[in-house]
Design a protein around this nucleic acid. Structure first.
Length: 514
RNA sequence: CGAGGCGUAGCGCAGGCCGGUAGCGCACUUGGUUUGGGACCAAGGGGUCGCAGGUUCGAAUCCUGUCGCCUCGACCA
């Protein structure tokens, strides 16, 4: 019975595998069906674009490089927002909202900042037909206007720290775009804080990066490497930039969140100063940190497979989908039963959806929910009802299980936890297996060419980094922290590129990147 | 923004070289038969051929421009 269905699975898997290997015609087949996607191994780009579209995450808008995030994608983003927002609040941060339009002059006030952002600014120079005396820019980030406002709000050290965060979107013109990964407008959170001392500001920078890290690990099941960016990869206007880097299933790195120590650069430019307890005047020490909707791209590319998305239960908008099966005359009753079951699962705190769509075959529904990455599917039919059992299938497994109904409900939470852990372990192992340690430039090039991450010594010279990028398209992702759980060992050596003594006292992580 | 490719029904495509008023598969609607891994039969609905100009008696087709998407490059989260 249930085994009959499970029995035909391997045949289908083989079919999919053949499709991978024999080229164009099969690719057309994948595309022709509304719910099939090009296998990852055949064309990772096509796979990604098709998953985004067919899983109903996002769609292209008529505006160049600006996407529309559809309800399913937005549900995902909202869950990410809520998770992060709770964490920010728990550490004393407050949300506020700044204008999208920033006076052009503000951007000009911090030298590195201007230089970094000038090429990608959208500018508003008219209202109606009236030319503006001073144009606005669409914010590429909000350090400047926040600095401007802070200068008016800050008098005494007693006012500090400012622990602010804004949820919104920013604009950075992109000539080459990709949904979630690189769009001209993107959605994010930008935290901005001001402190009375460098030490406190630095602690904040680290705290928020760690927050991103644990959120990625525990909620998104994304293993990420915490570390500091090299000088050439630093945020425009920052003293130090730190990042979390994740590995996608094509071996490329994705910077998944950043945190910056801005020192007094912006506070000087915007006169964000205060009186100390000793009655001296001092500029505030500021930070900023951001995580964007790009993280959805990380979820897609870290966990997804040839069947589509695979969402970690802790973030999945729908954790369990119930598909009522059986003959037409039983369907209405099965839907009833499925709703009853859904209510039981909801009482366990689980997010459930009953697929009560009529006229679609079960197989179609199974594929549909697999494409959308729902972690667990339950099949409920007359036979199950009679036997007091359910057929349960994890998105992460090929096998169906037949379980007693009560057990299935009470063990669902543990099952979801298991899937969550499995996804993290799988991604972690993938990252570790695809990272190699090298000591020669030839090995370096070969490893990058093979789509790996590379751990290598570097002299710290930006010109050498530039050269490496030109040769290999790989950049220094970051210098892992001493207490990063991956790649943290301190070592001495010589630069893999120049042969000069290595900087940083450890190997850097290099890779091609999104 | 440079080079290349592509825009024809919701999706995937054919037609274009050789101009004559648009077609296929899937999806959709209705009816019937089905239903535990992408159903079947029958009858239907849906397209100013991305947009704007031009050439022509006539343009999906030829020409020019423009917008958008994809790949590579330069730039970036």
């Amino acid at each position: 019975m249930a085994q009959a269905g499970a029995g035909s699975l391997p045949a289908m898997m083989v079919g999919m595998t053949e499709g991978k290997q024999s080229g164009k015609e099969h690719k057309q087949d994948h595309k022709a069906k509304q719910y099939g996607v090009t296998p990852q191994s055949e064309d990772f780009n096509d796979w990604y674009n098709e998953v985004v579209k067919k899983a109903d995450l996002a769609d292209h808008s008529p505006v160049a490089g600006a996407m529309v995030v559809k309800p399913y994608g937005t549900a995902l983003w909202e869950r990410i927002q809520r998770g992060l927002d709770d964490r920010f609040k728990a550490t004393g941060h407050q949300n506020l909202l700044f204008p999208t339009l920033i006076p052009m002059g503000f951007i000009m006030k911090e030298a590195d900042h201007v230089e970094g952002f000038a090429p990608e600014l959208f500018t508003v120079s008219k209202i109606g037909t009236e030319e503006l005396a001073e144009p606005y820019v669409m914010r590429p980030t909000s350090e400047t206007i926040i600095g401007h406002m802070w200068s008016g709000w800050l008098n005494s050290y007693r006012d500090l720290p400012f622990l602010h965060n804004q949820w919104g979107s920013v604009f950075r013109a992109e000539l080459r775009t990709k949904p979630f990964l690189r769009t001209s407008e993107f959605f994010w959170q930008e935290g901005h804080t001001a402190h009375a001392s460098e030490a406190e500001a630095r602690a904040e920078v680290r705290q928020q990066l760690d927050e991103y890290h644990s959120f990625c690990r525990d909620v998104l099941a994304l293993p990420v490497v915490r570390g500091e960016k090299t000088a050439s990869e630093r945020f425009a206007g920052a003293e130090n930039t730190y990042s979390i880097e994740g590995m996608m299933r094509d071996g490329k790195a994705l910077q998944s969140g950043t945190s910056h120590y801005l020192g007094q650069n912006f506070s000087r430019a915007f006169e964000v100063k205060f009186q100390t307890a000793e009655q001296r005047e001092e500029f505030a020490y500021t930070t900023s940190w951001g995580l964007s909707s790009r993280i959805i791209g990380a979820l897609i590319m870290t966990h997804g497979d040839d069947f589509g998305l695979m969402l970690p239960p802790n973030i999945a908008p729908i954790q369990v989908v119930i598909v009522p099966v059986g003959r037409k005359e039983d369907f209405a009753q099965m839907v009833e039963e499925a709703r009853r079951l859904a209510a039981e699962l909801e009482r366990e705190g689980i997010r459930v959806k009953v697929d009560d769509r009529e006229g679609l075959t079960n197989g179609f529904k199974y594929n549909d929910w697999e494409l959308k990455g729902v972690p667990v599917r339950i099949e409920l039919g007359p036979r199950d009802l009679e036997a007091g059992q359910l057929v349960v299938k994890n998105r992460t497994s090929e096998d169906k299980e037949t379980l007693g109904r009560v057990d299935a409900v009470t063990s669902m939470d543990a099952r979801l936890d298991g899937i969550q852990r499995y996804l993290y372990e799988r991604a972690k192992n993938f990252m570790l297996e695809n990272t190699v340690t090298v000591d020669t430039y030839d090995e370096f090039k070969a490893a990058i060419e093979a789509g790996k991450w590379v751990r290598a010594f570097h002299c710290g010279d930006p010109e050498s980094e530039r050269q490496i990028k030109e040769d290999t398209k790989a950049t220094a992702r970051n210098v892992p922290f001493d207490d990063a759980e991956f790649f943290a060992d301190r070592e001495e050596g010589v630069c893999v590129h120049t042969g000069k003594p290595a900087a940083y006292g450890k190997r850097l992580l290099f890779g091609r990147q999104y």
